[in-house]
Design a protein around this nucleic acid. Structure first.
Lengths: 128, 128
DNA sequence: TCCTTATTGAGACTGTGTCTTAATTATATC
DNA sequence: GATATAATTAAGACACAGTCTCAATAAGGA
């Protein structure tokens, strides 16, 4: 757990809140606009610790790099197949899906991860 | 499309069929037991091309490196949270889930990716 | 057998994420 | 306000998965 309040951590957390589902790289870019002296390791470390402590949610997505989300409640995500943007999706409970799932070789299912692909609002309105 | 039949491609495809959901690294390891002269680039390239042509399915999973599957039909996968092994899971149609999904910021949902986590048969039987 | 060109091997390169270590600095205590 | 100490940081090495380039090799048709 983090015991001291530092300029670096404050800035990272502020930037994460300001951006929409940023990757660590996105956060690093935005942080560097404010203070280029902050190191890459610090940004990755602060994000990892915030995710660890539950202050943020780390989104581990198929085919994208990890994103960070300030919305903590259970919800799913959509990855735009045009620009890669990640956005929130409200879904029904997946209990039924999990109930109906049969592990062919056996074993036990614990959890279910659902992720959508599609077009974000911006790309959906473009002529292509 | 591949027009020539080579020793390297034959060995890679044979190894993929023999293994269960191998990663490119797994395939490389197994290929090297037979012929250490085959290069990493060749293994990655052959796998990518086979996936591209539909001969194999590339599984892009959240939190794991890509795996290759000789089973082509639509099915889901379970990742063992103990050993990381990937195994097949038969699931119900996800159309209902997709129907009930609401993109909070708007946009359009195209596809749905479902992935399970749990214990593979082996890890499920261990005392821990 | 010879030629053409598809395929390969080697290794550079990229992106994402982690780890190590010495230097810095936030905060408690005086 | 000054000092001590231990948490935090900066820098950069490292690891891993995957891609790309390009000269060398070899498959298969003529």
């Amino acid at each position: 757990m983090r015991t001291r309040k530092t300029h670096q951590t404050e800035l990272v957390m502020q930037v994460v809140s300001a951006l929409d589902h940023p990757t660590a790289g996105d956060v690093l870019g935005a942080v560097h606009k404010e203070d280029p002296a902050i190191s890459r390791a610090t940004v990755f470390r602060v994000l990892a610790e915030a995710a660890e402590s539950g202050e943020l949610q780390r989104l581990v997505l198929a085919g994208s790099s990890d994103c960070f989300d300030v919305t903590l409640g259970r919800h799913a995500h959509m990855v735009c197949r045009c620009c890669g943007a990640v956005s929130d999706v409200v879904i029904d409970d997946t209990a039924a899906l999990e109930q109906g799932a049969v592990p062919v070789q056996g074993g036990r299912i614990d959890a279910c991860h659902v992720q959508f692909f599609g077009l974000c609002p911006t790309c959906n309105q473009e002529p292509n």
